[in-house]
Amino acid sequence: MPLDARPLAIAIMGPTASGKTAFALEVAQRFGGEIVSVDSALVYLGLDIGAAKPTVEERARVPHHLLDVRDPWQAYSAAEFAQEARVALDGIASRGRLPILAGGTGLYFQALLEGLAAMPAADAALRADITAEAQAQGWPALHAALAQVDPAAAARIHATDPQRIQRALEVYRLTGKPISQWQREARGMRLPFRVLKLVLAPADRTVLHERIARRFDLMLEQGFLDEVHRLRALPGMQAVAVPLDLPAVRAVGYRQAWEYLDGQGDAAAFRERAIAATRQLAKRQLTWLRGELDARWFDPAIDRARLDDALALFLP
């Protein structure tokens, strides 16, 4: 049997606050790697503290890719991410370095590792119609409409995720074919790398919840609300009619901060809402990760020796 000559890559996956960033930095320094962020919040300029973006010092230690590639009032699709990430991976491999994918955005991982179908481009008029429907009926009603025509997509898309609901309805209305079918047909466009998938996740869910709360409190101490004030003051953000519909503002923590600065609730309620939303995000991430049947799971607090063994067996 011929040897698999594909270049190697490591995917460090896991729920938010599980320690992916620190571990990715360590692996990159040990094995001569560069990190490709797989995170839908880190692509945005200005989302630093609340998105736990790698610091300037961390980026100086290890090259990072796909950070700060869009302004916060711009959209950024999974297809765009996959295209730009593939370019980054090819460049890293051509330099004889080890690509390390690190993040928790399942759709980005799927788009990059498995490929996305060549779905129709956005249709401005149809999007405006769907937005008008949402304003009249609410996004949960449109999510219910999506469930009627594409139950598989509706099961994956949260009822409060307007961007993905809109895109799924748009694709169906443009083509008559559910977006989930387009995505199934994309299989076979896989990334031409041999990828070791490592999932970091505390075995005890209370440990993860405690990490989430501690990290959010640290973000507040570091000036998270000041960061959101600065985002709100940007001319590009002020030009947006409904900023809460922007993907950047819907990032966990940012939406709750935005609403708090709009006068919704007190500081204690804001903190509780943000931590609860982050826990829900972690739950969704874990649900998606359980479907990655070729991924290996590790509790970073107790499985360090097993993690090192997995790396040693995979890397030459």
Rank of each mutant, 00 (worst) to 15 (best):
P63H: 05
A124I: 12
L218A: 14
T16H: 08
L169E: 04
P63D: 06
Q74L: 08
E80M: 13
D303L: 08
D262R: 15
R284K: 14
D266I: 10
V171K: 02
G138A: 10
R156M: 11
A301P: 01
P316G: 11
V36Y: 06
Q137P: 03
L234T: 05
L307R: 10
P63E: 03
L225Y: 00
A9F: 04
V207A: 08
D309E: 15
G106E: 03
D123T: 10
E133A: 15
A277F: 01
D245L: 15
E114K: 13
P63F: 02
L126W: 10
G50H: 01
A75E: 14
R211F: 09
R306P: 05
L45T: 13
R232A: 12
A154E: 00
L66P: 00
W182D: 00
Q238P: 00
A251M: 13
E57T: 13
L67A: 10
T105Y: 01
K197G: 05
Y44T: 11
A201E: 12
L25W: 03
G236R: 10
E292R: 14
G291K: 11
A277T: 00
A28T: 06
D294I: 10
V56C: 06
T278S: 12
T175Q: 10
D129N: 09
P192Y: 00
E259D: 08
A295P: 07
L293I: 15
R271V: 09
A79V: 04
L146M: 13
E221M: 11
L313G: 13
L112F: 02
Y76S: 11
D266G: 15
M237K: 13
A144E: 07
F270M: 14
A141S: 14
D303E: 04
K20R: 12
F193T: 02
Q148M: 15
P243C: 10
L116C: 05
M1F: 09
A79G: 14
I212W: 02
A295E: 11
R284G: 12
G19A: 05
L200Q: 06
G291P: 07
A41G: 11
F314M: 08
L112G: 01
P120E: 07
A269D: 10
F31S: 04
A79W: 02
R59P: 02
R230P: 03
V240P: 00
L281K: 07
L42Y: 04
G115K: 05
W258N: 07
A168E: 01
M13Y: 09
A312V: 09
D299M: 01
V171R: 00
P54H: 09
Q148P: 08
R156D: 08
I165L: 07
R296W: 04
E185N: 11
D294N: 14
A111I: 05
R173V: 13
P140G: 06
D71L: 14
A274R: 02
W139A: 11
A310C: 12
E185V: 06
L89P: 02
G103T: 04
T55G: 09
Q166F: 04
I165H: 03
R187S: 15
F193M: 13
A22M: 08
L200A: 06
W258P: 08
A9Q: 01
S37D: 08
A267V: 11
P63G: 06
I12L: 15
L3R: 11
E114G: 14
A295S: 09
T21H: 03
T206F: 01
Y172A: 00
R164G: 02
G236W: 04
G14F: 05
A124C: 06
